[in-house]
Design a protein around this nucleic acid. Structure first.
Length: 573
RNA sequence: GACUCAGUAGCUCAGCUGGUAGAGCACAUCCCUUUUAAGGAUGGGGUCCUGGGUUCGAACCCCAGCUGAGUCACCA
């Protein structure tokens, strides 16, 4: 990287780095730095009466500085928060040589640098708990300026808000936006709470294949890849359901997995191509049991995070206190449209859709039509957590038929804020029925549904050995986190959401430009007017290039002697 | 994929009807020993997203593109 591409502030920091080394200070030391206290801990527990925290060692990033002659204040941010530090020249430098304070601290350190400090806790006259620094160590020099966010009385100034930069450079987002860090701490706490609950009950956390020869367990377009030595296509899993059920066949009575799944579909506020689902399967249970289990889990997560069940989600107040209402799909449609779908034929359902202004197409079967009715007219009404139960059989090829009605299945979805949060069944364990359902999916696929499920023969074989009655549930961890942390976009609950690749402009070295005849003093100008590669110069018109060069020289008062038109032609030839 | 909005200094953003590009923070030099989104003085910093067009003249108007955000559609 040549100096010409660096901003002024980056050049200054690189110079500071060199000066530190000249002074014999290693800006990236190797040794361990043994910390014995954290910022938030001291702020919470320091008591001048008790005189505790009188020999503390902290480490973190400098986030602000206020230099006032012989004394200075700075804020240190560690992984628990920020604490103010007080530096006094004559304490940092007890001898005649004041370099460490005047040069190193005041000039060579910058906001963003990582340092370690030793000192004692005290309270300033203004009443802020601070660290009186006796000694500091440079632990990591920062060469890029951080965005500076300031805050007073809850008001934030100059916030770092550009979504693109926040997502692409999440590390910066995390450093300067503390609430972002909090979201991700909560995300982990959600997962830990669930894991705790499952383990208490003796369920086994397992891992199943991400690379699958047959992408099963859901209806979605997969990502495809290729295994070289087997010379076969492999798919990134869209779900792990069929593998977890194989484990139930194998004799585990409770298995669960927090699984990264991958779907090759659109991206928006609630969809990322890779996302996390938790699936759990428990033998000898049915979907009614699973509803109880699910609401207990969700309530427990809310309590673990917030100590209460009522949470603000966008402009809604949502109460996760159990029990949640159970509403069958038929009741839901009846309530919100006035139509009773019970016993209706495909034609009649199509008529109902037409009457309600819902678009249909001929490939839609009964199940799909009912699903549309629900999706269009009902779903968004369920703001408070609600179980919608008893889905049509066509939409649920892995679900056991309803004990009272063979057109329905024993399935529920948990709706929150008008969105699906969890999905669960009494699992279909009749291998003959399962085979027929897969065959129906094949027919759908022939009708043009490119997301109908593949037939997984090995999965069918496993069912033929016998699977106990089982209930399974899947829940979107990203969406759950969105609800629990009041974030409206999935990008805010993923550390590194999928983005379009950043355009990276490669640059040729100065030498390559000089080789083709450009005088060294003109190379930075050539770069500034937009040519980073010598290749690109071959295509430019000499006249325009000449004008741009001289124009830039004049505009920026560089005082270079303009080349002649012939010179420029020579460079380009 | 359609539509709407946005892109100006490291960050947040002004920039009128087209006429020499601005502020705050950050940065640099200086003053100040308990300050606190510190203050004061001085200074440096810009491919106004890119490429065309209109014009004597474009950050601004027109066209095309790139990137992002939002809404919708598709998709669970």
């Amino acid at each position: 990287m040549s100096i010409a591409e660096l901003s002024e502030q980056e050049v200054i920091r690189r110079n500071s780095l060199a000066k530190l080394r000249e002074l014999g200070i290693e800006p990236y030391p190797a040794e361990e730095y043994p910390v014995n206290a954290k910022a938030s801990e001291i702020k919470a527990n320091f008591d001048p009466e008790k005189g505790n925290y009188q020999e503390v060692v902290l480490a973190g990033r400098i986030m602000s500085r206020r230099i006032m002659g012989k004394a200075s204040f700075a804020e240190l941010q560690d992984d628990t928060g920020r604490i103010q530090m007080y530096f006094n020249r004559d304490e940092i430098c007890p001898d005649e040589d004041k370099t460490l304070y005047n040069e190193v601290f005041k000039k060579l350190l910058d906001i963003g640098d990582i340092i370690g400090v030793k000192g004692f806790a005290f309270v300033t006259q203004v009443g802020e708990k601070s660290i009186h620094v006796k000694e500091f160590t440079v632990l990591g020099k920062s060469l890029r300026p951080l965005p500076i966010v300031k805050e007073k009385e809850g008001k934030t100034y100059d916030a770092f808000t550009d979504p693109e930069q926040r997502y692409r450079q999440r590390y910066v987002d995390l450093v300067v936006n503390p609430q972002v860090k909090d979201t991700f701490i909560k995300r982990t706490k959600i997962i830990n709470t669930m894991r705790e609950m499952f383990n208490e009950r003796g369920y086994l956390e397992v891992e199943t294949p991400i690379l699958q020869a047959i992408p099963g367990g859901a209806a979605a377009r997969p990502f495809i890849t290729h295994h070289n030595s087997l010379n076969i296509p492999l798919y990134l899993r869209i779900a792990n359901e069929l593998y977890l059920k194989r484990l139930i066949v194998g004799g585990f009575d409770g298995v669960y997995e927090f699984a990264k799944d991958f779907r090759n579909e659109g991206m928006d506020r609630t969809h990322n191509p890779e996302f996390t689902a938790m699936e759990i399967y428990v033998a000898y249970k049915d979907y009614k049991w699973m509803m109880n289990f699910t609401e207990e889990m969700v309530e427990r997560v809310a309590l673990a995070l917030h100590g209460k069940t009522e949470l603000q989600v966008g402009d809604k107040l949502i109460d996760f206190k159990r029990p949640y209402p159970r509403v069958t799909m038929r009741e839901a449609i009846l309530e919100h449209t006035g139509y009773d779908i019970d016993g209706k034929t495909e034609e009649e359902l199509r008529e109902i859709c037409k009457a309600l202004d819902i678009e249909t197409d001929p490939s839609m079967g009964k199940g799909k039509l009912i699903d549309e009715l629900f999706g269009e007219k009902c779903e968004h009404h369920y703001i408070q957590p609600t179980f919608i139960t008893d889905y049509p059989v066509e939409m649920s090829p892995l679900t056991k038929k309803h004990r009272d009605n063979p057109e329905l299945t024993e399935r529920f979805e948990l709706m929150v804020n008008g969105k699906e949060l969890a999905n669960a069944y009494s699992e279909l364990n009749d291998p003959i029925d399962q085979r027929e359902r897969f065959e129906d999916q094949m027919k759908l696929s022939e009708k043009g549904d490119d997301e109908a499920m593949f037939i997984d023969q090995d999965f069918l074989r496993s069912l033929e050995y016998g699977m106990p009655p089982t209930s399974g549930m899947g829940i979107g961890i990203d969406r759950l986190t969105m609800f629990m942390t009041n974030n409206m976009s999935i990008q805010d609950v993923l550390f590194f959401p999928q983005m379009k690749p950043e355009k990276k402009s490669e640059a040729d070295s100065d030498e390559k430009f000089i080789e083709m005849g450009v005088p060294a003093e003109w190379v930075p100008v050539v770069r500034k007017i937009g040519f980073q590669k010598t290749e690109a110069l071959k295509e430019v018109k000499a006249g325009k290039f000449f004008n741009d060069l001289c124009g830039y020289n004049k505009k920026n008062k560089l005082g270079l002697t303009n080349p002649s038109m012939d010179d420029v032609k020579q460079w380009l030839s």
